[in-house]
Amino acid sequence: MWGWSAALRGAILAVPAVLVATRDVQLAAVLAIGVIPAACVPLPATRRARLRPAVLGALAAASLFVGSVLAESPPLAVVGIFVFAVVASRAAVGRPLGAVALSLCLPLVGVGLSLSSIAVGATLAAVVLGGSVYAFLVSQLWPSRPSSGTPASLASPGAASLRSFGYRAGLAGAICAGTGFALGLEHVGWATGAALLVMRPAPAVQQARSVGRIVDVVLGAALSIGLVTSGAPAGVVAAALGIAVICATATAGSRWYVVPAFTTFIVFVLLLSHAPDQAQERFWERVLETGFGIAVAALVGYWTLPRVRRPSSRRAG
């Protein structure tokens, strides 16, 4: 689903990154990343309700920072991811904020494990927080409209299912993080984040997100590599970053899982703008680590699900 009003909002959100890109592509990519968490939330009907995406952006910023702190101690990171998942799954039972912690904060803590230092984590968190505030101010340009009521949604998983999912998500995140640290991977958060971003209590939803994510990552990385290695002028790179932000905003309400293509594109522009010779290495690094994370999520999710449910089935019999 494409929204033209959302695309216009995305164009305004992209202005800082586009203006900076002609002088500093890396900084422009960071600014583009900063608005993505808030931009990826469909615009609420009322101006007051539009504070919600900004709050989600602030939570995203805090989660990335927490990940960078945990990354300083690999054992703490592995245990922390597991504990966070279990606690968040219990908090998610009947609590919207708990559900946000499980579906948004937990994966972004995993992504934060890729950040090279606490200082980098604090800087990125500050940029995301600033981008969220900017997105909130931009959202106020749109008039309030009548609310269509509570949007239809799928039934929430039961308490037992959520708690079981917390253990499975925690195990998947811990395996990916532990493997990444043990192998000395530069971006431990790529596999960890991929696993936690695709995992869902419903197997069919997880399968769809898994397929969508690997396709998005390949497509976004390939397009970014093509742009950077072609020696495109700064104006073209600026326009491409702007288009990525616009597309991420305009498709925020889509039933298709396409946002990772745009975020991957932006991240690869950030990584390769000063090192285009690393394009092939970065591509395979990202694709293989994403694939590993998705595979771990599938194995942990599908392999443990019958074992989690089996005791209750015996009691029922």
Rank of each mutant, 00 (worst) to 15 (best):
S254E: 12
G253A: 14
T192I: 02
V258E: 04
G166V: 04
S210V: 00
A195T: 12
A221T: 14
R255Y: 12
L223A: 06
T150F: 11
G189N: 04
P203F: 02
S161M: 05
R213P: 13
D216I: 01
I243V: 15
L197H: 11
G173V: 03
G193P: 07
A152N: 09
A177C: 09
I246Q: 06
L196D: 07
A159N: 04
G193T: 10
G235N: 00
G170S: 04
A172K: 08
R213T: 08
S210L: 01
S210K: 02
G166R: 05
A172F: 00
A195V: 10
T179C: 07
R255W: 09
V188D: 01
S224P: 06
A152D: 11
V228Q: 03
L197S: 15
V205K: 03
A248Q: 07
L241A: 03
A152R: 09
M199Q: 15
T249V: 12
A169S: 14
V258T: 10
L183H: 09
T229L: 13
P203T: 07
F165G: 04
V258N: 04
M199I: 13
A159T: 01
G180E: 05
V237M: 11
L227V: 05
A204Q: 15
A194H: 00
G242M: 07
V237E: 05
A191M: 11
L154Y: 14
S147C: 11
R200L: 13
G212K: 06
A250L: 08
